[in-house]
């Protein structure tokens, strides 16, 4: 009995640092951010209780809706292409042979680079006058191209989507490869003996194995895209106008440029609710497909 109690005491002491850390660094700020979202509070200035005023202020802010639209546009444009190319790459590298291992490693490099680095070198590549992309477009079209990628409302978004695809397709490919590896070799050989078309094989045999890894990939990519920040921040800085300001960039601006702490807290919770909502819908839709 006595030893039991002592052990419990020791256990508690061992838990304590983690517990304190969690309470201080996660649970308290979380609750406090809800509290503060009900106040008109500019950092360092006095606080006025305004109920849901901050939430109203966010939802009537045209910049918020623009940021939400832009974030969703990036997700809707980038993720399907990432999944499509990811699957292609997975099939391409799912064979054995000399150099395949090396190629697999090379393919994964974009994913391992810090987003900051990616942002900077793509910024140079997209440069209108001396960027390599315009240079190649010039070679392809036969006359020099001066396309100003980041100063056109549509092109800026497309440039961001392209970089996102470049950065994150390897991640999808990695998960898809893992899915393909799970197919028993004999099953794959049996299919090779069948006359089935490529599409039939893909749909009935490969897709069931890819379904779960792709579900995971789409989910993670969706969550990631909802909080996309660094690459966009460096590539376009949100411009032109605010045509590439994403949700997190908008939240950053409200919180750390305007210092509207109360509104930023409300905004963060709205973003969190949107994310949870979208992800829940996504899980429903995708998992329904996989059981049908």
């Amino acid at each position: 009995m006595k030893a039991d109690r002592r052990e419990r005491g020791i256990r508690l002491i061992l838990y304590l640092p983690t517990l304190i850390f969690l309470i201080l660094m996660s649970i308290f700020p979380l609750i406090f951010s809800i509290y503060i979202s009900f106040f008109n509070y500019t950092l360092g200035q006095h606080m006025d209780f305004i109920g849901f005023g901050n939430y109203g202020s966010v939802l009537t802010d045209s910049s918020f809706w623009s940021a939400l639209r832009i974030t969703l546009e990036i997700a809707v444009l980038a993720i399907p292409i990432e999944v499509f190319i990811g699957i292609l790459i997975a099939f391409l590298f799912n064979t054995r042979g000399k150099g395949v291992e090396v190629c697999r490693m090379i393919i994964l490099i974009p994913m391992m680079l810090p987003p900051l680095v990616i942002g900077f070198f793509w910024k140079y590549m997209f440069d209108a006058t001396f960027g390599i992309i315009n240079y190649f477009l010039g070679l392809l079209s036969g006359n020099p191209q001066i396309i100003s990628w980041f100063t056109d409302v549509r092109l800026a978004l497309i440039a961001i989507v392209l970089v996102d695809i470049w950065e994150w397709t390897p991640f999808v490919a990695l998960l898809a490869m893992a899915g393909l590896q799970a197919i028993p070799p004999n099953v794959r050989e049996t299919v090779r003996l069948e006359k089935a078309s490529w599409w039939l094989r893909f749909r009935t045999l490969y897709l069931p194995y890819l379904r779960f890894p792709l579900l995971v990939a789409i989910l993670i990519r969706s969550i990631d895209t909802l909080k996309i920040f660094d690459v966009v921040y460096i590539l376009t800085g949100g411009g032109p106008g605010e045509e590439t300001v994403t949700l997190t960039m908008f939240a950053y601006r409200v919180g750390f440029n305007y210092f509207y702490t109360g509104k930023a807290a409300a905004l963060s919770w709205i973003i969190a609710l949107i994310s949870v909502g979208l992800i829940t819908i996504l899980i429903r839709v995708l998992s329904r497909k996989s059981t049908a």
Binding site: D127, A128, T129, I146, I147, S148, F150, T151, T236, G237, G239, P240
Partner: peptide, 21 residues
């Protein structure tokens, strides 16, 4: 103005002056 001007912050402007762009 160079085509990228609407995306320029301080650094590109400074180096454009220094390089004669």
């Amino acid at each position: 103005c160079p085509p990228d001007t609407p995306n320029w912050d301080m650094d590109p402007k400074l180096s454009a002056l220094l390089t004669g762009l």
